[in-house]
Design a protein around this nucleic acid. Sequence first.
RNA 1: GCUCCCAUGGUGAAAUGGAUAUCACAACAGUCUUCGGAACUGUUGUUGUGGGUUCGAAUCCUACUGGGAGCACCA
Length: 587
Amino acid sequence: MIEKVLENLIKKALESLGIEGAETLNVSLEHPEVMAHGDYSTNVAMVLAKKMGENPRELAGKIKEEMDSVLQRNDRGENMIEKIEVAGPGFINFYLAKKVFENGVGEILKDGNQYGRNNILDGQRTIIDYTDPNPFKDFHIGHLMSNAIGESLSRIMEANGAIVKRANYQGDVGIHVAKAIWGAFKMLNESECKKAFFGGWFGLGKNSKIWGQAYTLGAIAFETDENAKKEITNLNKKIYDRSDGKINKLYDIGRKTSLEYFEKIYKILGTKFDYYFFESEVDDLGKAIVLEAMAKGYFEKSDGAVIFRGEKYDPLLHTRVFISSQGLPTYEAKEIGLTKEKYRRFAFDKTIAVTGNEINDYYRVVKKAMEFTIPDLASKVVHIGHGMLRLPSGKMSSRTGQVITGESLLTEIQKNILEKMRDRMMSKKEKTQIAEIVAVGALKYSILKQAAGGDIIFDFDKSISFEGDSGPYLQYSYVRAKSVLEKAKDENVKAKINKGDSDGSVLEKMLLRFTEVVERAGREYSPHYLAIYLTELASAFSTFYAEGKIVDKTDAKSPYKIALTQAFSVVMKSGLNLLGIKVPEKM
RNA sequence: GCUCCCAUGGUGAAAUGGAUAUCACAACAGUCUUCGGAACUGUUGUUGUGGGUUCGAAUCCUACUGGGAGCACCA
């Protein structure tokens, strides 16, 4: 809104100066890094000066003079700009009038939890595909990472006006399943297997742990024991064609308990998927599409396998196998089938897959192959590769059993938080619930605060801090605000915005930037802009909070301060919600 | 070997080609009869190396050094 006003002003000033061609220049209008430099700043003079061969500062001065006189001619009562200054090498800085902030705060209170929502994506139909754990294997911290990013992106895109469907793509067939089943048969004796067939056995959580161990056993044997390798390959075939009743039963139980266990985790994390896709339902489709394209010459046979020569189209791509020499579709072919199947279920304008970045290079090959196999969909496919959660000791591997499961990590964090809460006067049940919200918040924030592409070095003691730059810090600032509002209610001081109340504080300025941050986070698929913003906002509120009493009957500005506090609580709650983080009412 | 990604205070990170490189942790020095101290204020300290483009470079180009990932039937 205000950006439009400023852009128009710049345009008018340039027109009256007779400067042409400014439209095509790369002119920016941005917030100066230092707030003392004003609310907005433009580099238009510096860009133009280069083109016109003039001194940038002098030109900035001329443009500023012109803008001042444009403002004079306009209705001064409606003027939203307090002053304009030329600074530095030729920046033109704008300082907004108090009433802009007062109106802004009023708008936040009026819109409530709708504040910040916008329509820049205009109903764009979007599928976001994330988490993607494999049944029969552990749900490890890498899956937590994909989930945190995917869920947050989903919410941000929704806030920007998209229609979002959440999808989860899981590998329920393949050699990893055979490894786990093989391991399970080795680990369990006759009677345990019998019990397993009746679905009894251990609790749900433990059951999943058994599968993780079974997988590790099978995976190691597969690499070190030739006999075992043969048995597992054989088992894999039997799983595929469902020819053995005993195996089928164990497979069905394993698949079911795995998926139920994942659901439990999604509930804690706050994700509800609209669609589930399984490899077993897209592999035939993917294979068929590839074979059809091979007839047209886009794929070729090599050593019995069907391959795609990516380097033919782009030197940065390479050759990949899409159908193995055994005739089984690989990940690449399945991904094509998946995309087609996604579209069949929900005709999307865009589909976004969130996965680990180790597949970045071959996703590029797959995308190129899509241009030939499913050309109408290929341009709608976006891949976001996130970094890995690394342990200080090195890479995580479920093959060697060196994993931290998502569950154990969350439990550990929750324990720390409960310890911190031990003096709180609350029931044990309430404490546990709050600790869960805070634990999930701490974990998600530590993932979302940095740009998605990079790795996160995961130090158990340091990464999950409850101070400063952390999820609990944000939740805590919200709880404090709520506490203030409680007191205001008790003392019957109501929020009110009077003309001239604004003092142009950092808190006011930050509050009004929420919408543009939501837009940017959506445009660049980067939740971390939001996370960073919320931390700055919380910090501004904490400073404001410490400056003096907010609720004070003797202070004429108290109603405005309460209004600010309320606006803060609204924005913080919405912002955290967009990160997929819940807010407790106390903690 | 080839390709891609990355390198920012002691540590972990941020920065749409813009002004004095921002934040947190740690360290040090302070604030506390309060609306919740999981807080606030202050101090110290940073763009891997060499060239180049630009009025202006952490950001773009180039060479090097160091790290990570990928490179044919796993995903």
